[in-house]
Computed example of a mutant assay.
Amino acid sequence: MNKREYTLNEFILEAAEDPNENDFFELEKPALLEVNLKNQKIMAKAGSMVAYIGNIDFKREGMMSKGLGGLLKKAISGEGTSLMYATGTGKLYLADEGKKVKIIKLKNEAIFVNGNDVLALEESIQNEIKMLKSVAGMMSGGLFQVKLSGSGYIAITTHGEPILLKVTPGQPVFTDPNATVAWSENLTPKIKTNLTFGSFIGRGSGESFQLEFMGEGWVLVQPYEEVKYAAKA
């Protein structure tokens, strides 16, 4: 077995971007999305740009209001999850606090995603944002879900490697709202409270309730409770 020398050349080769990758959305590294723009426009989470090569312009859209059709005035963080438009030609690199990136190519399909876990989407993707109103008083900012539909690329983020749980008739799945990342279009989560054991579930006082998924479909959860805090002034 050859011993690694950890030379500078070895480091450069290991960390360098792959010039052969040129799909629209590419997973450059587990936590780094590469978007290859060719006179195109995408929407991305504001602040997610870590680098770019070429001629790309950015326009911040405030609070997902215009970028993700008809959004409410308040979102997960307390002030809203902001989006930006990226337009032009070149390579764009996006990341979000070291979270793992998952690329999905929708083909006339739809999924629901936790609003804070949306990293980027093609301009062609249609979207609609809703809120589980019954959760609003229970957790900071409520729980916002984004319905992404149509045909094109989307990129979502997760803390660690997620697991996909199948939901079947007669076998519902219960999840922690702060660990729930995405779910299939045909499922509508309901709130299930557990006042008796609330003190022992999770690590926070707001976790005495769960999301209940019934029917047939799937739910994606991450091994992490992503508690949302109100933004500072």
Results as ranks from 00 to 15, higher is better:
119 L>S: 02
119 L>D: 00
120 A>I: 07
120 A>V: 11
122 E>V: 02
122 E>Q: 15
122 E>W: 08
123 E>H: 11
123 E>M: 12
123 E>P: 07
124 S>Y: 09
124 S>D: 14
124 S>A: 15
124 S>L: 10
124 S>C: 12
124 S>G: 12
125 I>V: 08
125 I>K: 05
126 Q>F: 12
126 Q>S: 15
126 Q>N: 13
127 N>I: 09
127 N>V: 15
127 N>Y: 09
127 N>P: 05
128 E>M: 10
129 I>F: 10
129 I>H: 06
129 I>Y: 03
130 K>T: 12
130 K>S: 14
130 K>R: 15
130 K>D: 14
130 K>L: 13
131 M>N: 05
131 M>H: 05
131 M>K: 11
131 M>C: 10
131 M>S: 13
132 L>K: 11
132 L>Y: 09
132 L>N: 13
132 L>P: 04
133 K>H: 11
133 K>P: 08
134 S>W: 10
134 S>G: 15
134 S>P: 09
134 S>N: 14
135 V>N: 07
136 A>K: 15
136 A>H: 11
136 A>C: 09
136 A>W: 09
136 A>Q: 15
137 G>S: 11
138 M>C: 10
138 M>S: 15
138 M>D: 15
139 M>P: 02
139 M>R: 05
139 M>N: 04
140 S>A: 15
140 S>E: 13
140 S>F: 08
140 S>R: 09
140 S>T: 12
140 S>V: 09
141 G>Q: 05
141 G>M: 04
141 G>F: 01
141 G>V: 01
141 G>A: 05
142 G>P: 04
142 G>C: 07
142 G>W: 04
142 G>H: 06
142 G>E: 01
142 G>L: 07
142 G>T: 01
142 G>R: 04
142 G>D: 07
143 L>M: 12
143 L>R: 00
143 L>A: 08
144 F>V: 12
144 F>L: 12
144 F>A: 14
144 F>N: 07
145 Q>T: 13
145 Q>Y: 13
145 Q>P: 02
145 Q>V: 14
145 Q>H: 11
146 V>P: 03
146 V>G: 06
146 V>M: 14
146 V>Y: 08
147 K>N: 10
147 K>E: 09
147 K>T: 07
148 L>Q: 03
148 L>N: 03
148 L>S: 06
148 L>H: 04
148 L>G: 04
149 S>A: 11
149 S>F: 09
149 S>L: 06
150 G>H: 03
151 S>A: 10
151 S>I: 08
151 S>N: 10
152 G>T: 03
152 G>D: 01
152 G>Q: 05
153 Y>R: 05
153 Y>G: 00
153 Y>M: 01
153 Y>A: 03
153 Y>E: 03
154 I>N: 06
154 I>D: 04
154 I>H: 04
154 I>P: 00
154 I>K: 06
155 A>E: 01
155 A>F: 03
155 A>T: 00
156 I>M: 03
156 I>T: 02
156 I>Q: 03
